[in-house]
Design a protein around this nucleic acid. Structure first.
Lengths: 221, 221
DNA sequence: CTTATATTTTAGGCTTATCTAAATTTATTT
DNA sequence: AAATAAATTTAGATAAGCCTAAAATATAAG
């Protein structure tokens, strides 16, 4: 009934890949995601299929079964709740919590998860703006788009990041761009798709398209 | 440099056995403590000896090296800090936290341990009265004795339990005996060593010697 | 002090999760 | 559509952590 840490990591990785692509997930994509070799992934896929956690046909890629999805979402729920704890309660910075939450997400105790959720005030999103699945596995739709998809003149509120790397998060810190900020897209440079943006109606800065793609906003007005 | 969960569990078990007995620890004692077979223990002892975490001679038992002791005490520190978190913050009962802390004690992050310690207000003891090693590994001496060793007429303040089982802790709950209570030993029955005690100068109850041996008190007056 | 018993270790196996290298299948290109 | 390339799987190893059964050592008893 219960999964190993490794199995949980695979399920989580598959879930994220399915969410992004909507399609069957490839062995190589999983290997990249969990940092192993394709051969190791194939071994694990067989085991997860035996346990009815994924549906898998040789050479055809995989998707999660309802059971597998339930497990994956539960792991994601725990990960994101712990991130909230680390940032809100223990005062870690948003770029410091990933590796720790990566360990904490595997702690097995439903009672713990539910009490932690309550303790934190049933948060809806984690420190990076990612939605936290509720107890039943339901995930609130974020309705967010990359800043790069905004049209000149339009505004959005920053609600998340697509790149969770320390490097990117620290970059945002330095530029003083954070969740909740109102961002107006002034203009896009044709040549390199870099953009002039205004943050909270105050500060105007220039950002590259690479950065704009990784800032997620909810459109306003 | 880093230990597996299993290695940490063995080191913790050895540490506890050494603390109790003061002597070299036997293979069988460790096997009982970590719930495996003696043959498995021997395998692990070789590995721990290779890593210079224990000193081990075939058939002669083991003790911890300073390095091994440092690791063991760090695990104990984390275990007890997490127990405080679970009881004080998440409102678990003292008989519910052991298994969860058993998992949390293996989370690897010095920053996390230190921030948790600070968050909790640098607690000196865990919910069962066991002392929490400080950052340097120092453990405050408890100066406690089993209630069974008190002389009739003498008083003590309950500061801990020798038996951490759910059964015993729930028994104490039912009898409304808790840490911090003042306990006076009225008299000991010669026949079965059972005792009449007074709790907080109010309630007089009869307890068996088995119970008295597992209640730890600090003598007063 | 020698035999019987208890403890500990060794030998050989099993499972999980990895890996590399080779074989197979699918996809792409000419 | 055949040839080449890319992706995936299989085969065979390895290390960690556990097991049972048998052998070795230590301890206790007569």
């Amino acid at each position: 009934m219960s999964q190993t840490h490794s199995e949980e990591n695979y399920l989580k990785a598959i879930w994220k890949l399915v969410e992004h692509s909507g399609e069957n997930v490839s062995t190589n994509a999983i290997a990249a995601s969990v940092n192993t070799k394709a051969a190791s992934v194939t071994d694990m896929l067989k085991k997860l299929a035996d346990k009815k956690l994924i549906s898998y046909e040789r050479y055809k890629g995989v998707t999660l079964t309802p059971k597998g999805k339930r497990v994956a979402v539960e792991v994601v729920r725990k990960h994101r709740l712990w991130e909230v704890f680390l940032v809100d309660q223990l005062k870690f910075k948003w770029d410091e919590v990933h590796d720790i939450a990566e360990q904490l997400e595997h702690i097995q105790s439903n009672a713990l998860t539910e009490r932690l959720d309550k303790f934190l005030g049933f948060p809806k999103v984690d420190p990076h703006g990612d939605p936290i699945p509720d107890k039943t596995g339901k995930i609130q739709d974020q309705q967010q788009v990359p800043l790069s998809q905004l049209e000149p003149g339009k505004k959005g509120i920053m609600t998340g990041v697509a790149d969770h790397s320390t490097l990117f998060l620290q970059f945002l810190d330095k530029k003083e761009i954070k969740l909740g900020d109102t961002i107006e897209l002034k203009e896009t440079t044709d040549y390199d798709q870099s953009m002039m943006i205004v943050i909270n109606k105050k500060k105007t800065i220039q950002i590259s398209n690479d950065v704009a793609k990784n800032i997620l906003v909810r459109r306003i007005k």
